[in-house]
């Protein structure tokens, strides 16, 4: 376990080597949040929108910004690149588990982004003084916390799986872009998924992406009934197991094809 903790610490140090890059990445996220804030600000001038009050929507926008910083990572992009350029070989030589090795690298990046996003949202709230909801219900907060942990795993599994395409193709970035686009749209990064018709809403809820942002945020905003909550949690767990199984299978198939080109 200590080895993964060391990876975590080293990844922190590495991220801090590139402060300007980190700053730009956060700036992008801050601008995105500000834009969304003003969109919702004008849409809720006449009161509620799609069942959300102004304060709820603003909370959604801020919450999405913070959650994205914890859940959506970019470290796994390197996996595909390393498979293609042969660097990946070094992980096969050492007594480490690549899945967890990358997970802790990713986690290091996530925690840095998380700290930064808390500051961003804090500053924004101080300046714009918007209405927002501070959840105090203990059970909602517990479920919220639990759903974030699951979302973190789910995202990591999905993006790890997409990276493994590199075993078959030199062009793993194509599927990656498609994946990221699909993710932004169907995870509820821009708007709550409940704005859609019931049919589309349930379609999206039966896919894994909705559990990354929309699900935790609607728990926080108490938009879910208890019975719904249990069903959705069950569905999320099923997705995690299914994707973990597929990832394991693809991994072992991919390794047989791996040629370590470039070294």
């Amino acid at each position: 376990m200590k080895k993964y903790w060391t990876v975590f610490k080293m990844s922190w140090a590495r991220e801090l080597e590139y402060r300007f890059n980190f700053f730009l990445w956060r700036l992008r996220s801050f601008i995105g949040m500000t834009l969304l804030y003003f969109v919702w600000f004008s849409l809720t001038l006449k009161g509620k929108f799609a069942g959300f009050t102004e304060a709820e929507l603003f909370t959604y926008v801020f919450g999405a910004n913070i959650l994205r910083s914890i859940i959506f990572g970019s470290q796994t992009r390197n996996i595909a690149e390393e498979i293609n350029n042969g660097w990946f070989s070094r992980y096969l030589l050492m007594p480490i588990n690549h899945f967890w090795f990358e997970f802790f690298r990713e986690l290091a990046q996530r925690t840095l982004n998380f700290i930064s996003s808390i500051f961003e949202v804090g500053i924004f709230i101080l300046i714009a003084k918007p209405n927002f909801i501070l959840e105090k219900n203990f059970s909602s907060l517990t479920f919220f916390f639990f759903s974030i942990i699951l979302a973190l795993f789910l995202y990591y599994l999905l993006s790890y799986l997409v990276s493994l395409v590199a075993f078959w193709s030199r062009e793993a970035m194509g599927p990656r872009f498609l994946f990221e686009w699909l993710l932004e749209f169907s995870s509820g990064a821009y708007f709550p998924l409940s704005v859609f018709s019931e049919f589309l809403f349930f379609t999206l809820m039966s896919l894994p992406f909705a559990y990354l942002l929309y699900f935790p945020l609607s728990i926080y905003l108490e938009k879910m009934h208890n019975s719904e909550l249990i069903n959705f949690f069950a569905l999320e767990l099923i997705w995690i197991f299914v994707i973990a199984f597929i990832t394991k299978y693809i991994w072992s198939k991919g390794l047989k094809r791996f040629t370590g080109e470039g070294i």
């Binding site: 080895k3 060391t6 990876v7 050492m94 480490i96």
Partner: peptide
Amino acid sequence: WWDLPAMESFILNKEIY
């Protein structure tokens, strides 16, 4: 690790092995 001093990589290897 390209961006870090070699000593860091040595410490990582210490843990890995």
